[in-house]
Amino acid sequence: MTAPRDPFFPAEQSIRASAAPIDVRELGLVDYQQAWDLQADLAAKRAKDKIGDTILVLEHPSTFTAGKRTQPEDMPDESYPVPVVTVDRGGRITWHGEGQLVVYPIIKLAEPVDVVDYVRRLEEALIQTVRAAGVTTAGRVDGRSGVWVPAETKAASPEASTRERKIAALGIRITRGVTMHGLSLNCDNTLSHYEHIVACGIDDADVTTLSLELGRDVTPGEMAGPVVHELKRALAGELVVADHTFATRPDPSKGLTRKVR
């Protein structure tokens, strides 16, 4: 998704309202609803300047989360034994579970709040992290959020050719200038649960993990430090957003309203 205008702040400038250090909390495995409640509490306190900026680093037990644009056809069968939580972030349905790194920045943004620039900075942090880990072709698909790996055509074995693959997802909410929700990076999680939903409303692409792409086990614990490091740099303007777009596809959420409650 190409930004429709230049960002409000120069690329080398911080978009945080504060220059104080960010409090990073590594929480381990946390129930989704419990983490959401914690985010809401921290965001309310951050809006009133009762606390500073905070980044939550964690994993969730297996859970589907349905964003504001989720459609009935995206949903799993009612008999499928994984809970679905309807959430207040953007986008459609996705899955969270063990082996997937989840990072929730609770950040007070400088005014005027620039949502597009914030999302692009999150993406840039993830792209740089994934590339440094070894997936050097990772980038953006214009029209779709998150971080993607390009399709591959294998002449020697056409049946093994791949489609574009999402390796990291984004979903945010900004209230009173404070961010909630955030990003997830597939590390060594199973992909089996994605087969029961239309992930992010996209049925013409696939989902992947760092472990699958690199041919070795890559854990959330291995990636937590690099992701937080690049995220801090991106928010501070030390990591400049670049054009890593390799394809253009339809926006799966454009013009949709929520039909799932």
Rank of each mutant, 00 (worst) to 15 (best):
V24S: 01
P10G: 04
L42D: 07
S192N: 13
T219G: 11
T136P: 02
T70F: 14
S18V: 03
A224Q: 09
V24D: 00
T257E: 12
V147G: 12
T2M: 10
V178S: 14
T245V: 12
D251C: 09
S253L: 05
D37C: 03
K232N: 12
L42P: 02
G146W: 08
T175L: 14
I55G: 08
R120V: 03
I106Q: 05
K259E: 10
G225H: 14
V87E: 13
D142I: 00
P72T: 10
G139S: 06
T153Y: 15
G143E: 06
D114C: 01
A160V: 03
I174N: 13
E73V: 11
A40H: 05
S18Y: 05
M180H: 07
T153D: 14
G146P: 08
D77F: 03
A110W: 00
P226E: 09
D31S: 01
A43N: 05
I167A: 13
A199R: 05
V198S: 15
C187G: 12
P105Q: 02
A160L: 15
G139H: 04
D77I: 05
H193E: 10
P150L: 06
S145C: 08
A205I: 00
W95C: 03
G134T: 00
A43G: 04
V147A: 10
W148P: 05
E152D: 15
E152F: 06
H193V: 06
S161D: 14
H60V: 02
M75E: 11
G221D: 14
T54V: 12
V87N: 14
G237Y: 05
V24C: 03
V115I: 09
R176G: 00
F8E: 10
P10Q: 08
H181M: 04
V30A: 02
S145K: 11
R25P: 02
V24M: 01
E164I: 11
E213P: 07
Y118E: 02
E124A: 04
V84I: 14
T86V: 15
E222D: 13
V240L: 15
S184V: 01
L58W: 10
K254F: 11
D41C: 04
L214A: 09
S157K: 15
V103Q: 07
I172M: 13
V135G: 09
D31T: 07
H229T: 13
E159N: 12
D251P: 06
D41P: 01
P4Q: 07
V119A: 10
L183A: 13
W148D: 04
D49Q: 14
I22K: 06
D114M: 01
Q13T: 00
Y194W: 11
A43S: 11
A44C: 02
V207E: 11
Y32N: 06
S253M: 07
H96A: 01
P226M: 06
W36Q: 00
A160H: 12
D142C: 09
L183R: 08
R258P: 05
A168E: 06
D203I: 03
V198Y: 12
S253G: 08
G52K: 13
T63A: 07
Q33L: 07
G237N: 10
L38D: 09
K68D: 00
A11V: 01
E152C: 08
A168V: 01
G146H: 10
D243G: 02
Y118I: 01
T2N: 15
D188L: 01
A110I: 02
L126W: 01
P250Q: 07
I22R: 00
D188M: 11
R92G: 00
P4H: 05
A43P: 03
T219N: 12
E213M: 12
V241R: 15
T136C: 04
